[in-house]
Amino acid sequence: MNRSKQSVDKRTESTGRQMPEFYMPAMPPVALTEEMDHWYRLWRRRRHLRQLLVLDDAALEALGLKREDLEWATHRPWREDAFEALRERREHAH
């Protein structure tokens, strides 16, 4: 086994992350791409909630949502998942 293959195997064992089958040193670190993907998913989910705010109150009520809850969830800190925050708020309200 060549030296570069050994170092890739060690990183895989130490981090617990599975390295892609094809890996080039010029590729961004796997942890960085995973973190970017996580932030993108949070942003996209928050955007979907904001898009619901264009509906009138009757349509939101038909979906089981309240405008003030949606506004509250979309103004949570960026590190929080707005969908999860909304779900927890609705569970505690019932």
Rank of each mutant, 00 (worst) to 15 (best):
M1T: 11
M1I: 09
N2K: 13
N2P: 06
R3S: 13
S4P: 04
S4V: 13
K5T: 15
K5E: 15
K5W: 03
Q6I: 15
Q6F: 12
S7W: 13
S7C: 10
V8H: 02
V8A: 12
D9T: 12
D9V: 10
K10I: 15
K10W: 13
R11I: 13
T12H: 05
T12Q: 13
T12N: 05
S14N: 14
T15R: 05
T15V: 08
G16I: 05
G16E: 04
G16F: 06
R17F: 13
R17S: 08
M19I: 06
P20F: 05
P20V: 06
P20R: 08
P20S: 08
F22K: 12
Y23V: 07
Y23N: 09
M24Y: 13
M24T: 12
P25I: 03
P25V: 09
A26E: 15
M27L: 09
P28L: 06
P29A: 14
L32D: 10
L32M: 11
M36R: 11
M36C: 09
H38I: 09
H38L: 11
W39Q: 14
Y40A: 14
Y40G: 08
R41I: 09
R41M: 11
W43T: 12
R44N: 10
R45M: 03
R45P: 04
R45K: 09
R47K: 14
H48A: 09
H48T: 07
L49N: 05
L49T: 06
R50D: 00
L53H: 01
V54D: 05
V54L: 03
V54F: 05
L55G: 06
L55I: 00
D56S: 02
D56L: 04
D56Q: 07
D56W: 06
D57A: 08
A58R: 06
L60E: 03
E61W: 00
A62T: 04
A62W: 00
A62V: 01
L63W: 02
L63P: 03
L63E: 02
G64N: 02
L65T: 01
L65S: 00
K66F: 06
K66N: 09
K66Q: 12
R67C: 00
R67S: 06
R67W: 00
E68G: 07
L70H: 03
L70W: 00
E71R: 08
A73S: 06
A73G: 01
T74P: 03
R76A: 10
R76Q: 15
P77W: 04
P77L: 08
W78S: 15
R79E: 15
R79M: 13
R79P: 03
D81Q: 04
D81Y: 04
D81G: 00
F83E: 02
F83M: 08
E84S: 07
E84F: 08
E84Y: 03
E84G: 04
